[in-house]
Amino acid sequence: MLPPVNFLQLLLPDFALILLGYLVCRYTALNRTVWEQVESLVYFFLFPVLLFQSIVRSPLDLGATSSLIGAGLLLGLSGIGLSYLLPHLPGLGRHIDRREHAGAAQVAFRFNSYIALALSERVAGTQGLLLIAVLIGVCVPLFNVGAVWPMARHSDTGFLRALVRNPLIIATALGLAANFAGFRVPVWLEPTVSRVGGASIPLGLMAAGAGMRLAHLAQQKALTTGVLAIRHLLLPLVAAGLAWAFSLDAAQATVLLAFSALPTASSCYVLASRMGYNGAYVAGLVTLSTLLGLASLPFALGFLRGLVVSA
C-alpha cells in the first residue's frame, strides 16, 4: 500500500530556497554580481559532481528493469517531442517567441533529482531508490541532450561543440561509463563527494531565485502555459498509459508516475543563463513548477496510480 506523503512538506524547502535567493539578491549587498559567480560554481563543478555520484551510486541492472527503462525513455522522448512541438502548433505557435522557447523547452521534461530521490524512497522504500537511480542513469543523458540542442541550434554555436563542452553531459557520460565499469566512489571519499554534490541543490535554487523576474512570465503566457502543462499534466497521463502498456509492477508504476510529475530541474535556470538565454524567465518557470508539483504529484500518485494498479 502506498504510504502517505506530505507533498507540501516535501516541496516547501525548495520553494523557500528560491524565495530566499530572491530576497537576498534584492535587499542585501549580495547582488547579481555575486550570484553570477555562484551560477558558474554550480554549473561547472557542484552539479556535475552530484550527477556523477547519483549515477554511480547503484549498479544499473538493465535486465531486471528493462520494462521500466523502456517506459522511462519513451516518457522522456514524449516530453521532449511535445516541448519541441509547441512553436509549431496552430494558433499557439504564433504567440511563442522562438528564442525564449529554445531556453525554456527543457522545463517541460527535465526533473528535480533531489526531490526524485527523496520521494521515491518515501513511496517505494529501498526498492524505489534503486528504480529511480536506474531512471536517472538512463534518462539524464537523453534529457541533457534534449535541453542543449534547441539552445545550441538557435544560437548557431554548433550542437556537437555545445554538447561535448557541456559539464552536465560530460558528468553524465563519465557516470554511466564508471557505473558499467563497476566503479564506485571509495567509502573514505564518499562523505566529501556527497557534501560537494549536495551543495549544488540549495545554491542552484537560491541562484534561480536571485535571477527570477516574474514579470517575464506574463510576457510569455502561451509558452509558460505550454511547458508547464506538459510537465505537470500531460506527462503524468503519458506515464499512466506507459505503465499499463508495459505491465509494470506496483513499485515500478509508482516510481514512473512520481518521476513523471516532479517539479522541473533547478539547474534549468543555470543552464539557460550560462548558454546566453533568458535565465530570469526560466527561473520564474522553475518557481511555478515547484508550486505546481503540489498538484501534479498527488494527481499522479493518487488518482492515476489507482487506475494503473487496479487495471
Rank of each mutant, 00 (worst) to 15 (best):
L189M: 14
W188V: 14
L168T: 06
E121P: 03
G72F: 06
P167F: 05
R94G: 05
A108G: 11
A250D: 13
I115H: 02
L46A: 09
F143W: 09
A250T: 13
A171V: 07
L176Y: 11
L74G: 07
F52C: 01
L248I: 14
R26T: 09
L75C: 03
L163P: 01
L256I: 11
L292R: 04
L174R: 00
R153P: 00
A239P: 05
D156C: 11
A239I: 10
Q219I: 01
A280S: 15
V148H: 06
G91C: 03
G103K: 01
V134H: 12
A207W: 02
C139L: 15
H232E: 00
A253T: 10
A178I: 05
R274F: 10
A118H: 01
S58H: 11
L41M: 15
A147G: 02
R122T: 05
M206H: 11
V5S: 00
L288H: 03
A258V: 01
G197E: 03
A251K: 13
G79W: 01
H232P: 06
V196M: 12
G306F: 04
T157Y: 08
A300R: 00
E100P: 01
L307Q: 07
L62C: 13
L214I: 12
G137I: 08
L86F: 08
I69W: 10
L82V: 02
F246S: 11
L291T: 01
D97M: 10
D97G: 13
G241I: 11
A295H: 00
T224I: 09
I96A: 05
N179V: 03
P236C: 00
V196G: 08
L50N: 08
Q53Y: 12
N144K: 01
L242A: 09
P59V: 07
T254P: 08
L301P: 00
P13V: 01
